[in-house]
Computed example of a mutant assay.
Amino acid sequence: MKPVKPVGVIKTSKYDLHLYDPSSSESAIPKKKASVAQLEALAKGREKQLLLRQRHQWYEEIGRFEQDENCAIEWARKQLKRRKWVILDTETTGLDDAEIVQIGIIDREGKTVLDSLIKPTIAIPEEAIAVHCITNEAVANAPSFPEIYPQIVEALKSKQVLIYNANFDTSILRYCCKLHKLPLLEFKKGCDCVMKWYSQYCGEWSRYYGSYKWQPLNGKHNAVDDCLATLALIQVMASEELINLEASFQSYLHR
């Protein structure tokens, strides 16, 4: 019904409530029926809203993870097209306030740029030796961190640096620089964490942490070998086909 003239009013402190009599043509009249075109427009609007709800549901359940996987693939492809980057890895005396006992750096083609044991200022604990098998005897005649430092600086100069679990290795490098009162290493071309991209590519989502689960490198705990393992993961991601997100959505609709 369409209101014409109220038959009464209820006054309140905030507004006036008008009353209409649907049985009186002077008070209310039937609304004009919608045309065929209007009904079709309403139906299309409902279909559009339904499709938007379905797309949102697909995105939350599937789409965002496939989109993230595509981003990881594209990132890997971009790295392989770059001309100046290196992969770095270290083995250490432990996890916290640890020192480097081995460092490895390779270039984009997998060629070794730097591979050296490093003699720390402290003894390597047995639990660390059990992981990487680098003993105190093995590093007894190795160069110290200050001695190998210039080679690290040269290897990283004007290069983007890729590291599997970058937060760990960069914190260890920073600690060793401070320990020996050396300038902090600069990553002028940037430093990227391959572990984050690979974990995004694998897509194992943790609801508890609200992020992707870290994936182990499964390397040999030898610095250069782990660099090569990191390069292999980048190559695996880069070789993967991108997911057709629209096809994925259509498949979701017809499941």
Rank of each mutant, 00 (worst) to 15 (best):
Q102A: 13
K78N: 15
Q49E: 13
G110K: 04
E69Q: 14
G104M: 02
I152M: 12
A37I: 07
L95H: 10
E154W: 00
I129S: 05
A72H: 06
A28E: 10
S158Q: 11
D96L: 14
C71R: 11
T92R: 02
A28I: 03
Q54K: 15
Q38I: 03
Y149A: 09
I73F: 05
K157N: 07
A98T: 03
L156Y: 06
R82H: 04
D68C: 04
I124R: 09
T135S: 15
T93A: 07
E74L: 14
T92P: 06
H132N: 10
E66L: 12
Q79A: 03
I124H: 13
K32N: 06
I105V: 15
R83K: 15
S116Q: 09
A140K: 13
E91T: 00
C71S: 11
E147S: 11
N70S: 08
E74G: 06
A130V: 03
S144C: 02
R108M: 13
R77M: 02
E66D: 07
A34T: 02
G45A: 02
K44S: 02
R108V: 08
R108E: 14
I103C: 05
W58F: 14
D96I: 14
E137H: 10
L88D: 01
P120Q: 08
A130D: 12
T121H: 14
K33F: 10
A43I: 07
G104W: 05
Q54C: 04
Y59P: 00
I134Q: 10
W85Q: 02
T90R: 13
L88P: 00
E137M: 10
A128S: 15
T112F: 01
I73C: 03
K111D: 08
L51E: 13
A138R: 13
A140D: 06
L117N: 08
R83E: 15
Q67D: 09
E99I: 02
V153N: 09
D115Y: 00
A123V: 10
K111F: 12
I106F: 06
I103E: 02
K119Y: 00
A123T: 13
F65Q: 00
E91M: 04
V101I: 15
K157F: 05
K111G: 09
K32M: 09
R55D: 01
I62V: 09
W85M: 03
G104T: 05
L51G: 09
L52A: 14
P30E: 13
N70P: 08
I62R: 09
S116G: 07
I122C: 13
E147T: 12
L117Y: 15
E60L: 14
K33E: 12
A76E: 05
D68Q: 03
